[in-house]
Amino acid sequence: MGEAIVITSGKGGVGKTTTSANIGTALALMEKKVCLIDTDIGLRNLDVVMGLENRIIYDIVDVIEERCKLKQALIKDKRFDYLTLLPAAQTSDKTAVTTDGMKKIISELKQEYDYIIIDCPAGIEQGFQNAIAGADRAIVVTTPEKSSVRDADRIIGLIEKEDMKEPPRLIINRIRNHMMKSGDMIDIDDIVQLLSIDLIGVVIDDEEVIKASNKGEPVALHPNTKSSIAYRNIARRILGETVPLQSLEDEKGMFQKVKKFFGIRA
């Protein structure tokens, strides 16, 4: 019996889709059977980020309106067998999906998969309600910006009203270390204190993420970038491991290390 996790944020553009794709990929790399569901009907792009756009034949609305079987709509990832995607429809709108329809699909998928990652649309309307309907757990994504933290707070309030197994957990995305140090960005501690939920991961703002998503392959596939490690750590924490938070410091060059050794300020 699998577990359904919804990735949500309230505000748009904070990285829900990227986070969903990367957590899904990281879990699949650890040999868990994962199904990604895109619930952003009308504005789908999880398939683009995963590079599976050209394989879509049926979508989630086809499943709900019984034009096809659930199995027919699922797309196997081109890189490994553990990962599948249930794409959103591009032509219908959000009213085509109901909470009951979502619950039915998710409970069916849970028989088959270890983790079902639900990519939630922005906003708090029907699309959001659909996305959280069948979820057991929620992960809230925010960036260190006031507006995004405010929306995350609102979303957490809404999720707390639902009957989920545990309170939502937090990912802080797009951290720019130098701005946080200079006080131009809100501090991680301040965000966590304000939202008062558990932090499950921090991801730095990384150009590699953009490069990878344009190529249609999640950054978590590359072993050495900082953001990739961050996503893999999040996946390990989802599995229940305790992994310390990644240090945000940039790797220092040899010369600077030597300078530091001699006590010269870098």
């Binding site: 405010r150 929306d151 707070d153 609102r154 957490i156 309030g157 304000l194 939202l195 008062s196």
Partner: peptide, 23 residues
């Protein structure tokens, strides 16, 4: 916690053990 978008209304005095977040 009274989060963004939430309103807590009471008759009489209110003793809130928790935060009132922005919004």
């Amino acid at each position: 916690i009274v989060r963004s978008g939430q309103v807590l209304e009471v008759k009489g005095d209110l003793l809130l053990i928790g935060d009132v977040n922005p919004g």
